[in-house]
Design a protein around this nucleic acid. Structure first.
Lengths: 338, 338
DNA sequence: CTGTTAGCGCTTTCAA
DNA sequence: TTGAAAGCGCTAACAG
């Protein structure tokens, strides 16, 4: 169908290698010959086969990204950082969306292969011990984004500290009855998600340091979604002594809490202070106080690391921690009683 | 590094072709030989190279998707439909995010190549005449999603009719001063986006049919974004005689209008009715009346078409129209004066 | 400077 | 049944 290097060589009356040299900008071709070859190439609309080149070079110029629930705003933003960086270097991005344990395992088993991609980026999905070993065995560059694992490079934030930051903000505003709504263990365990759990750790640290009781009724865990958070928040707010503030492990969940207050005719922040996490697009619109983490940058940085590893560098397998920032908006205030 | 078919053949003491036959489930291998080969394969952890297979077969088992601004909720949802369908058939999704005219052109030129992918899906990006010709020349299956072009398959909705539906809803509620906020021509022209323009056509049809004047001051066009829509809506609402209803070409823009009403201390729908488009996730939360289009399904259907074409089918190059649906929520009501 | 010759890892005849 | 050989389209090493 398409013209091959051989067709070009024949038409230009030169050897196969000469065409290859022209293609690869080798200086060992006379200007005249080069021009003749170039003319024929243009004439035949010849385009070198990526495939054949890939087979020889053993490089696919492709980076695979395994991402869970890639419609989530935070994941998307990371992907955008990845795509932008990769595209800037002529690399392709192959996306694998994970929404079940089976798919997660299948991806971890099948995706990291040298004949498929030059490197693997994993978002929020820490591999288990045996999987790490398998990953190392492939010799393929691997970078984790929004998670970490020993022996692998990672780009993430300090979720415990970020959880402390959010909770401390609430404590310093004078709140003493503070709730937390995050991801259910059963669900995070499926994917080994850690961020909600770690933010919860930070939450507890601050509560304890402030001498505040940790009340089970003030801690709600459910599937990561607006609806689930709404139900959990409703329960909490209907308590005889409801919390005056709630820290949500994500903005999506904070939205659910906002919905619950609306359902119950409560006003934010008069009746309840809410603090979310991520600073997704809609947070500003809703006036949600939140902990902003550099999503785009995490993807971009992860992609840069992969690219440098593909280029042959072998950076130490450490986890890079990106800074978070508290964005204060209208959903937080001192408690009414204070 | 990794074991090759030759290593297996040598270790099993058989010919190269025999291993290949075992791999390809050929019946022309004795059970004994097959077992021996299988054992060696397991022992050597041999995995056939996708690359080499691809070179031979001329198939990449990859579908490329060119999408503009893939962080937009509507685009994401289509991509999810695409990925889900592709993954279900063992195909990989390579994503190209387009955010500039240069990148659009580069993608259209470089992506549709048989050595890169088996088919191309384009979201919201109709190719121009010369590009269509080039696309045909590649012999590669191409399917357009959310747009159409003569000679190519497309999956979209009837945006004119949808625009009429939205506007008619407003007219039937009794509104006579109805505004429209959509994408600016200068910006859509860059990518040949048509949906906002067509929805606007529908808007005008209904206005004229209802004998209502089309007032330039009631039509605002800007970059597709919340902020721009907010500015446009503000202007419109500060008019001596402001519209009592506004139809936004997207939910994102409807959010901007919502923001503007809030800025001005107006109540929705008492002071202003708003109707959006897409029914993105947040629309329900905000109680936004909107025109829902099947986003996930459009992607899924587009992917199915591509897959069937890759399988050799040559469906007629027609555009499939998916149904839209009006979702009535709290942002619409009869005008206060009615 | 340039043509020729091996392969990359696999599929596919073609004999045996 | 099975082994050997001929490529797929290209690069790289090797003679000229």
């Amino acid at each position: 169908m398409a013209a091959t290097i051989r067709d070009v060589a024949r038409a230009a009356g030169v050897g196969l290698g000469t065409v290859s040299r022209v293609l690869n900008l080798s200086p060992l071709v006379s200007a005249a010959t080069r021009q003749r070859v170039l003319d024929v190439i243009a004439e035949l609309h010849y385009v070198p086969s990526r495939l054949a080149h890939t087979l020889i070079a053993g490089k696919t110029r492709t980076v695979a990204t395994i991402a869970p629930f890639f419609t989530r705003p935070s994941v998307i933003e990371r992907l955008r950082g990845i795509e932008a960086t990769l595209a800037g270097h002529g690399y392709n991005l192959v996306v694998f969306n994970v929404e079940s344990a089976e798919r997660r395992n299948a991806c971890l088993r099948d995706v990291p292969r040298a004949d498929r991609c030059d490197g693997v980026l994993m978002i929020s999905l820490p591999p288990r011990g045996d999987e790490i070993a398998a990953l190392h065995a492939t010799k393929l560059p691997v970078v984790l984004v929004d998670t970490s694992a020993s022996g692998l490079l990672g780009v993430c934030i300090d979720d415990v500290a970020a959880g402390e930051l959010a909770t401390r903000t609430l404590v310093e505003l004078g709140h003493r009855r503070i709730g937390f709504i995050g991801d259910a263990q059963a669900y995070t365990a499926t994917f080994n998600f850690t961020s909600s759990w770690e933010r919860h750790q930070g939450f507890r640290h601050v509560l304890q340091a402030a001498g505040l009781a940790v009340r089970p009724a003030y801690e709600g865990f459910g599937f990561h979604g607006r609806y689930e958070a709404r139900v959990l928040a409703r329960e909490m707010l209907l308590l005889a002594e409801p919390p005056t503030a709630i820290f949500a492990a994500s903005d999506t969940q904070a939205l659910g809490i906002l919905e619950a207050t609306r359902d119950l005719g409560l006003t934010v922040p008069a009746h309840l202070s809410i603090i979310g996490f991520d600073d997704i697009d809609i947070a500003e619109y809703l006036g949600l106080t939140t902990v902003r983490q550099p999503l785009f940058e995490s993807g971009a940085h992860g992609a840069e690391l992969i690219l440098s590893m593909i280029a042959g560098h072998r950076p130490a397998p450490v986890t890079a921690y990106l800074p978070v920032e508290l964005v204060v908006r209208g959903s937080t205030a001192p408690p009414a009683s204070a």
